[in-house]
Nucleic acid binder design. Structure first.
Length: 288
DNA sequence: GCTCAGGCACCACTTACTTCA
DNA sequence: TGTGAAGTAAGTGGTGCCTGA
């Protein structure tokens, strides 16, 4: 049973504004990647952390809470010897299996798991080809659910989830690793797409600006241009708010608009900027 | 306090298998 | 019915962090 993309919660929607002011803040429209603040995504659901935080104090309570995840699964069936069953080639009742050979059952944190995993010698392993697990829909759904809550598991969460799903902790761990990898891959694809669009926009903008520069240079070099132009005016800009200050009557308005300007810095604009300093103090208007 | 070894979790990469068009 | 692509469970090696000696 394949888990569909919708099930993975990976909507690759690119409906961001093209003129996003902060393109580095990319947003994957995935409900599964909000691990930083799971409770924000699901404010009414008890989070996995909350559910398992109490496992030290009251494991029964913890178990009861986490059972709520198991909608389609017989939650009363706690596979006490699941690990051994798995190693012996018996998969969980909800899983599809097929023949395959497996090798490694290392790195399991708890000793019991170790003892069980190593119960089969190489010869036995060769003879009794282990079954490759195919997770059932329900198992995938529950794993997805817990991944939405938190995309990493502490050992207790892992063990509890494994028990409830009838899987080995290693399998839960592997599933989360692969799930994180898939999420990251999707995020990378989205980021790549965004950067591509950004690059296209910047290229276009660059082209436009270069064209504008060329036109302005052509105008500047034309003598008729100077003849027809009215005497140059120096526009100045408020350094704080970057509004253009207009000499004469508009000064009053500017005064009203920004009475706090402290550092007058005339910013001449136009081709006469360096050659024709205008002896007025445009930002005096900003001073009290 | 510093160093070192062991354990563990995670990641990137890869393999092997399943499913589907 | 055979086949290639895509998806995915699982293996492998590397790395960083933590802890106890």
């Amino acid at each position: 049973m394949m888990v569909q993309k919708e099930d993975l919660g990976l909507s690759l929607s690119l409906n961001f504004p093209l003129n996003t002011p902060n393109p580095q803040h990319l947003t994957l429209m995935s409900s599964s990647t909000h691990s930083s603040s799971p409770s924000a995504c699901n404010p009414h659901k008890p989070s996995w952390n909350e559910a398992f935080a109490s496992s030290d104090r009251n494991s029964e309570t913890c178990r009861g809470e986490t059972r709520s995840f198991l909608r389609g699964i017989d939650v009363n069936r706690l596979p006490s010897s699941v690990e051994c069953e798995e190693e012996a080639g018996v998969s969980s009742p909800n899983s599809t299996v097929s023949s395959v050979s497996g090798k490694r059952s290392e790195r399991e944190p708890n000793g019991e798991e170790h003892a069980c995993s190593r119960g089969i010698s190489d010869e036995e392993d060769a003879e009794t080809s282990r079954k490759k697990l195919r997770l059932s829909k329900d198992q995938s759904a529950i794993l997805e659910e817990s991944f939405k809550e938190h995309n990493t598991l502490n050992p207790k969460q892992k063990l509890a989830l494994a028990k409830q799903l009838g899987l080995r902790p290693r399998q839960v761990e592997v599933w989360f690793q692969n799930r994180r990898a898939r999420t990251k891959l999707k995020q990378t694809e989205v980021d790549c797409e965004v950067l591509k669009r950004c690059c296209e926009n910047l290229t276009e903008e660059n082209r436009r600006l270069q064209k504008e520069v060329q036109e302005l240079r052509a105008l500047k070099l034309s003598p008729q241009f100077y003849m027809q132009m009215t005497p140059p005016t120096t526009l100045t800009m408020c350094p704080s708010c970057e509004r253009v200050a207009v000499p004469s009557s508009a000064v009053d308005a500017a005064t009203r608009h920004h009475p706090m300007a402290q550092a007058p810095r005339p910013m001449p604009i136009g081709p006469w900027a360096s050659a024709a300093p205008v002896p007025h103090r445009p930002f005096d208007a900003f001073h009290h």
